[in-house]
Amino acid sequence: MFHLDWKLMIAQVINLGIVVFVLWFIVFKPLAKKISQRSQEIEKGLENAKQSQALLDKSQKEYLDVIMTAREKAKVIFDEAEKSALKEKEKILLIAKEESEKISKITKENLLDEKEKIMKSAKKDLADLVVLALEKTLGKAAKDGIDKDLIENSIRDIANTKDNG
């Protein structure tokens, strides 16, 4: 009924074999290889991108760490500088104070010396004035020994009077 013919069947199997060979080995196999290569390249690209991203993240983290460390170091340096400046200020102030005290002391001493000198000179001048006044009053020159004692006593009296007054 269906006219089955084994020769025809074999011929059709041969046809199928040719199609399988032609399509798979000439067309699909190289294409499959190409697709596989492309997939591998894409996967490799993705992997590289992932690695690059990881590297970038790491670099950013390192950069932030470096910045943080630098900031911390700068803060420490700044604090130290501030402390050091304060110390230096105190030191300078102390030295200045000492200098000023020294200068003040020297000035005081100088003043006292000067005062003493002036006082001595004034005393002398006063004594001379008194002698001169006495000479003028008495009309003769006082004898050195007696006059001198007299002058000194007079000056002492004047001084005492001045102090009491």
Binding site: L16, V19, V20, W24, F25
Partner: peptide
């Protein structure tokens, strides 16, 4: 799939 495709795929096309 790659083991069977050389046979099945050409049959489909044929």
């Amino acid at each position: 799939t790659l083991k069977f495709a050389p046979f099945v795929l050409p049959i489909f096309c044929f």
